[in-house]
């Protein structure tokens, strides 16, 4: 089995399947980011607010992702946590221009990072500071301070500035996530 899997991965045939959860407040750009990650042919033109959740599939060099695109509106936020236990990574998307809800964001992010299914399994979290193209948006380092992440040492998290409309910064973030998830899967196997 081990021989075949390594052989197949060598040929890039059987990519490993991983589940990730995409969460974040409403209007932060979760669906748009996932849309950007899909191949250009499969992208949809119209993005509407997600209801419940939508599963999006896309792949990087060595991983095949099943992304659970969660709805961000207040009434759906309590459903996020039920998906953590079956996933190998979390993407937290935030709107860097939304200063009004920065405190609420901090609350929600801490609830994700301190959730028992995330902490006990040590799954990687990637924070995407989206909408960096909007004038007056906060930088990734500003957000790190505003969310109190500089004081948060436990867990594996990283923050990236992105623009979902153009796809800027997304590749780097996804590379990091893939690397973290691979590392996480290795540690699980041993």
């Amino acid at each position: 089995m081990g021989f075949f899997s390594s052989l197949s991965s060598l040929f890039g045939l059987g990519k490993k399947d991983v589940n990730i959860v995409v969460v974040g407040l409403d209007n932060s750009g979760k669906t748009t980011i996932l849309n950007q990650l899909k191949t250009p042919e499969t992208r949809s033109q119209q993005i509407v607010p997600t209801v419940g959740h939508v599963v999006t599939n896309f792949s990087t060099q060595n991983l095949s992702f099943h992304a659970f695109d969660m709805a961000g509106q207040m009434k759906y936020r309590s459903t996020w946590e039920s998906y953590f236990h079956s996933s190998q990574g979390v993407i937290f998307v935030l709107d860097s221009s939304d200063r009004l809800r920065m405190e609420l964001l901090k609350d929600e992010l801490m609830m994700v990072m301190e959730h028992k299914d995330v902490v006990s399994r040590g799954i990687p979290i990637v924070i995407l500071a989206n909408k960096m193209d909007i004038p007056g948006a906060m930088t990734a380092s500003d957000i790190t301070v505003a969310l109190g992440l500089n004081l948060y040492r436990s867990g594996t998290w990283s923050i990236h500035s992105t623009c979902a409309l153009t796809g800027d910064g997304l590749d780097k973030a996804m590379q990091q996530l893939s690397a973290e998830i691979t590392k996480y899967m290795e540690s699980r196997r041993t």
Binding site: M74, R101, L104, D107, M111
Partner: peptide, 8 residues
Amino acid sequence: AIQIFRRK
């Protein structure tokens, strides 16, 4: 000032 009621 603006405050939001916490979900939890």
